[in-house]
Design a protein around this nucleic acid. Structure first.
Lengths: 268, 268
DNA sequence: ATGTTTATCTCGCCG
DNA sequence: CGGCGAGGTAAACAT
């Protein structure tokens, strides 16, 4: 269902209906966006694409960037209503209390339609967050009732890299024997815990792509923790497995006596 | 501009026109999605919302989740064409070569319209990546020509936390003197470098939210590096500044002789 | 609910 | 272009 250049009240009714029917709702038009919660932001008027999902997610997209300029995570409560004659600043005013909840009980009637402003509000608690989109102009409202049972199959992940090594431990090094995955230590879980051909304990940390210093520190935390946990007299080996390392990470590995093995998540 | 339930060829022409005019294009319908690049994925048929941005970004959204189920970053080249009678699997076939580039030179004509499949393709290099969306059914095609000059102002960031401390160093501790920000070390840049009231060097790492073990490791890398860089005989102090710490991070701080100061990025 | 880690992370900055 | 770190990161998974 699609409306082009609807009046604010017609847009409001179509959106409210879409939300009721658990449809995916999109609105395109000139709007301001205000967010307050974990941080806070304001965005002056511009033409943007807003998507409200039936799971409570909200996305505001400009014509640039992969990421939305503003958003709200799934689980939020969406509300739509009209305000008599709000200016560009919709963040203030009387909407901080819950008087307008439900489906817009204090809304404007159809007779005020040409001066009214369409407002989308999305809120959640834990943490308390509010997103407010105020439309000066609505160019399109659409609702989509589709279904999606399709499951995404993804390969080339860290878990594929783990499986690859478990299937062929020699890819890590000749004589390596995996003993556990996700082995717990006081610093967190080790990706692969095993033994080399000399019986030395080996801690393996996996990364699906080129690694920097953070991955080295992570491996080091695990090796340190395991040494403590085991009161190990013998030195443990720590091996970072990834397609490649940055130079700084390489140096860090050396400083901490850790090793690197180059391996990709999939065999081409 | 909006078409509802267009024929594949009409949809193709509208989308091609939208891409030409640097408009934001949306397509809603039943489609399969195949991705190959840094990883690879397949997604069976379902109703989804596809957005093509003039900067080359592509987003495929289902009715759930804040994140797109598939995407392509800005900078990609979008292409649209019709294929005679492709099944659900659009990842194979003759489209691996560049013969269909441009605006669909090997496309289907309007007479084949009822059996044709609409295909969206988005590709880039460095890294080589390809996204293929094959529509069995197109419910809506829209193009939006809007503009967006609005700048986002965001507060509550790490940079706000830094400014807060630079304005009032006593917030960190009485007698603290900031000497530099982004001070470079062999391990990277220190957020705030300074001195305490006893003249001891202080390394400050800032986080806008509650921190875990990774932040502690990061601070430790900087402290270690600076000790080395300065051949410091005296001990450096390392202070992690964040709203709060997790317990494991707290313990790590203790093990490494690092400190914690609780501070929020903004004053309420 | 919080903690921990991954991610086709994205994004910006800087060399 | 790659390295590095921030992010209202989100999402998955475990506790």
């Amino acid at each position: 269902m699609t409306l082009e250049r609807p009046t604010p009240t017609a847009a409001r009714d179509a959106i409210a209906d879409g939300l009721d029917r658990e449809a995916l709702v999109t609105v395109f038009g000139r709007c301001t966006v205000d967010y307050d919660g974990r941080a806070s932001s304001q965005l002056a008027a511009g033409d943007r694409h807003v998507m409200l999902k039936p799971d409570g997610a909200a996305l505001v997209h400009t014509d640039e960037g992969q990421q939305p300029v503003n958003w709200q995570p799934p689980g939020c409560a969406h509300d739509v209503f009209c305000e008599p004659a709000a200016g560009a600043d919709g963040s203030d005013g009387s909407e901080t209390d819950g008087s307008g909840s439900g489906s817009g009980s204090d809304d404007v009637t159809a007779s005020d339609t040409d001066t009214a402003t369409l407002v989308l509000e999305s809120t959640r608690s834990t943490p308390e967050e509010r997103l407010l989109v105020c439309f000066q102009d609505v160019l399109q409202v659409s609702t989509f009732a589709g279904t999606d049972e399709g499951e995404l199959t993804l390969s080339g992940t860290e878990s594929d890299l783990r499986d690859r090594i478990l299937d062929s431990p020699d890819l890590l090094e000749s004589g390596f024997t995996p003993l556990a995955t996700e082995r717990d230590t006081s610093a967190g879980a080790i990706d692969i815990y095993g033994e080399d051909d000399a019986g030395r304990t080996v801690v393996v940390e996996l990364k699906r792509r080129r690694v920097g210093p953070d991955a080295v520190s992570q491996l080091r935390r695990y090796v340190d923790a395991l040494e403590r946990d085991l009161h190990a007299d013998a030195t443990l080996r720590g091996i970072l497995v990834a397609p490649s390392v940055t130079e700084r990470a390489q140096r860090l590995l050396g400083e901490h006596g850790l090793e690197f093995v180059s391996l990709e998540p999939t065999d081409e």
